[in-house]
Design a protein around this nucleic acid. Structure first.
Length: 801
RNA sequence: GCCACGGUGGCGGAAUUGGCAUACGCGAUGGACUCAAAAUCCAUUGUCCGCAAGGGCUUGAGGGUUCGACUCCCUCCCGUGGCACCA
């Protein structure tokens, strides 16, 4: 008997698969389509990580099973290759980032192939290839034309180490997500994208899709819609008004002061009347110097200053009240001013306590009802109704606010898509100020990244492209005069915004993808990715899809959402439950595992290690369990598959296993799918029976999505035709699942006392008889009176005495 | 602080959604094979009492509902992730 030698077997089948068209998705077939998508990786120099493998292998199993079930499956792969690590490497070694990228993607591809993943490599894409980013740029131009891309001088999050502006999403507790350096504020002209215009749809359309609940909740919270009202407070002796945003207009009678954000523009207008201006100005300056992080840290100890000499008037009761400036109010949210109701807001209460301000209770809550008090004609009104009524009575306006901000789209780096815009001063002068920006004509796209000598960002915060005079100077597409190119590049989210569209038609040079083909493949049926992308890539790409849908760049029939279903996998941790990181030296390289145990073993182990959605520590010792399982199957297949017909009981177990594996793969319960296959193998080993030929084929078929190399090898040795992966997914026979006899639990007072074997579906009377006749049960009941008997068919009988 | 998820043997984890808790795997112990080791195979493996038959206890803690609770309800503790002065 030969020994199981995965190295030999696996190489052989990988060659056969990739030389044939077996994983190729057809753009037109009679069979139903199924589009399985996993997030494409950033090809780092470290190579593939066992964490990547987990999601790739899981969805490879899903893709393979769907193919066997008769679907025309698209399971593509590509490279999200723009990004800082490659640029940093290029800076250090003086190698062009494109060369580094090529090296890395080659390595990733080799690793993926060595895992036997069933990607359709004929559709491979790379965000850094000009043929691809031509369309990333094209999308930007469309955004600009529709007024959704605009340039604005804003205070951005600036990482002094990376020398790059960061989106809010890339700042984690005041620090740069990438390098951990404390983020600073910097005023800069940036391209912005109006994602806020889509805020409502991004929330509401979540109802149309099948995403894991945790994903929907996180997106909703990130967008942060809150409904409320804007109410104007007039100023005593002054022809100015302060507009506040509140979600609690019902508490207006309890408002005892106003608070302005230090940057609020009205302060300048009323400056002359402020008696303590010097003091106030000092406070404002201090507040401006604080970073967001410092502001946040002070959240227990609020500071502020009253502006003396001016009072605001409460529109509800005409009472005069003081106005404060405090940095606990943010300029960027709502109107930058609030009405403070210390009785019903914790933050206002803290502030009121510190500055000795009155607290006036106006809403009485008792259980599930909230009734207004101390609110004149509104007394006794339900607070929900009062929100509407009070807003109306003071001439307020119902409004909605979002936490979501517009998306900062400029980066000051070399290794990204050039923003295809040209600025013409001549045009700017002729039109109104601020204009002068023109998109590069679509026929001139892509704007290719020029070769530069140095890849470092400049100290002035400009991209290295800015120093390339030859490239920067260009004729104005409008007037033909002297103009300059935009030298900033796009963030690395730009390429991943729409990549799943490109897989449908990756070589199209006329459109981002052909409409008919898009209509066939979209929406993506199942998209899996990391939880960390929920408020980044997933949100951005939903937004961009909606935009493309609005301008009819993608067919209307697809509907407003690109992904039907979204799930996410748990992170693979290092042994001991800590994060795998290069600096800790605990990163597991799949190459090493494959070399030692084989890729089917790695695949099985990654699926078996624990629930797919949960994070899970790597266990080097545990891998041998997966290897032993495959060896067992290999050996059994050599000696125990010769029968014409399987034993009936054995066949039953097989059909139960078919049912379990079929259901579990669909539910991503890969760990229990593997364990049921192990149970089958154990039973096979212990039994004296051999497995019949057809049943053997069925067994290989249900194992093949998880261990495709081994099953194809055994398939061939058994004399079956073609690839096992091209065979039909077996259907279980429901008659075989049903037991003829079942073991019924007999309980006395809820405690298990006996187990009896009875016929399937026997009635209560019959079961009672058998149970009461058991000598064990008789002994336990003794002379006690039977009060009640509970009977659950085919499961249990409980005698209460 | 708020939201989400989780807490089950020495370890990773199962449990048809209210019906045998600890499947499957790792590890451990003993045995077979071997000159020996590895590999493999067999047996045992939640815990306590007991020579044994057998019995008690056990799913983070406490309470409740129920004939019956890992599962449902209430109170609390711990861990992970996200948000966080968002008015």
């Amino acid at each position: 008997m030969q020994r199981y030698n995965p190295i030999k077997i696996e190489k052989k089948w990988q060659n056969k698969w990739y030389d044939s068209d077996t994983f190729k998705a057809k753009n037109k077939t009679k069979s139903p389509k199924f589009y399985v998508l996993v997030e494409f990786p950033y090809p780092s120099g470290d190579g593939l990580h066992v964490g990547h493998c987990r999601s790739f292998v899981a969805f490879d199993a899903i893709a393979r099973k769907k193919r066997m079930q008769g679907f025309n499956v698209l399971y593509p792969m590509g490279w999200d290759a723009f990004g800082l690590p490659t640029e940093n490497y290029a800076i250090k070694r003086g190698v062009h980032p494109a060369l580094v990228t090529k090296k890395n993607t080659d390595n990733f591809k080799r690793q993926m192939k060595s895992l036997g993943l069933s990607f359709d490599w004929s559709r491979e894409i790379n965000t850094t290839s000009p043929q691809y980013y031509k369309w990333t740029q094209w999308i930007f131009v469309q955004l600009f034309k529709k007024g959704l891309a605009y340039k604005d001088k804003i205070s951005i999050n600036w990482c002094p180490s990376c020398k790059i502006g960061l989106a809010n999403e890339e700042v984690v507790s005041g620090k740069c997500e990438r390098c951990g350096t404390k983020v600073e504020k910097k005023e800069k002209e940036q391209w912005m994208i109006k994602i806020t215009k889509y805020a409502d749809r991004l929330i509401d359309d979540l109802n149309l899709v099948d995403y894991q609940e945790r994903i929907k909740i996180q997106q909703k919270e990130w967008i942060g819609r809150s409904e409320g009202a804007e109410i104007n407070f007039s100023l005593d002796d002054f022809n100015e008004k302060i507009k506040v945003f509140t979600t609690r207009p019902d508490t207006l009678f309890g408002c005892t002061f106003l608070v302005l954000a230090p940057e609020h523009q009205i302060i300048g207008k009323i400056k002359s009347k402020i008696k303590n201006w010097q003091e106030a100005e000092k406070y404002i300056k201090q507040a401006k110097n604080k970073s967001d992080l410092e502001r946040m840290e002070n959240n227990k100890n609020k500071t502020g200053i009253e502006i003396k000499g001016i009072k605001a008037v409460n529109p509800a009761n005409n009472e005069k009240m003081p106005i404060f400036i405090s940095d606990y109010v943010m300029l960027s949210y709502g109107t930058g001013a609030i009405m403070a109701v210390p009785a019903h807001d914790e933050r206002d209460f803290e502030f009121a306590k510190k500055y000795n301000l009155p607290v006036k209770e106006v809403v009485l809550s008792d259980g599930n009802k909230s009734i207004l008090i101390n609110s004149a004609q509104f007394n006794g009104m339900d607070s929900k109704k009062a929100k509407e009524e009070i807003t109306k009575s003071v001439g307020g306006k119902k409004t909605v606010n979002y936490k979501l901000r517009d998306w900062i789209f400029s980066r000051q780096h070399y290794w990204g898509e050039p923003i295809p815009m040209v600025f013409c001063e001549e045009c700017a002068r002729r039109h109104d100020p601020g204009q002068g920006w023109h998109p590069v004509p679509e026929k001139d796209l892509p704007v290719e990244l020029p070769k530069v000598k140095k890849y470092q960002p400049t100290n002035t915060g400009e991209s290295p492209l800015a120093s390339m005079d030859k490239w920067v100077k260009v004729a104005c597409p409008e007037c033909g005069g002297n103009a300059r190119r935009e030298t900033d590049t796009m963030p690395n989210w730009a390429g991943s915004n729409w990549y799943y569209l490109r897989y449908c038609d990756p070589k199209n040079n006329k459109k981002l993808a052909n409409e008919k083909i898009l209509k066939y493949w979209l929406p993506v049926d199942w998209y899996n990715g990391g939880m960390e992308h929920t408020t980044l890539h997933l949100l951005y790409s939903r937004f961009i899809f909606k935009f493309l849908w609005d301008i009819a760049a993608v067919p209307k029939q697809i509907g407003p959402e690109p992904y039907k279903k979204r799930t996410s996998h748990g992170v693979v941790l290092a042994e001991g439950g800590i994060k795998m990181s290069k600096s800790k030296g605990n990163v597991v390289n799949p190459d090493d595992v494959i070399k030692k145990y084989g890729s089917d073993t790695l695949r099985i182990y990654e699926m078996f290690m624990g629930p797919f959605e949960q994070m899970i520590p790597w266990d080097q010792k545990g891998i041998v369990g997966a290897r032993r399982f495959l060896e067992k199957i290999y050996n059994l297949s050599e000696v125990k598959r010769t029968a014409v017909k399987s034993d009936e009981n054995f066949k039953k177990l097989l059909h139960k296993t078919i049912k379990k594996v079929s259901e579990d793969i669909d539910l991503m319960k890969f760990n229990t799918a593997v364990s049921s296959l192990m149970e089958f193998a154990n039973a096979w080993q212990v039994s004296q029976n051999t497995l019949g030929k057809d049943d053997f084929a069925d067994f290989l078929a249900i194992l093949s999505p998880l261990a495709p190399h081994l099953t194809d090898e055994l398939w061939e040795r058994a004399g079956f035709k073609g690839f096992c992966g091209d065979s039909k997914w077996p259907k279980y026979d429901s008659k075989l699942i049903v037991e003829e006899s079942v073991l019924i639990i007999v309980q006395v007072n809820g405690k298990v006392r006996d187990k009896i074997k009875v016929g399937y579906n026997i009635g209560q009377k019959e079961a009672e008889n058998v149970a009461l006749n058991s000598s064990k049960i008789k002994g336990i009941i003794g002379g006690n009176q039977i009060k009640k008997i509970i009977f659950i068919p085919n499961k249990l009988i409980n005698i209460v005495v």
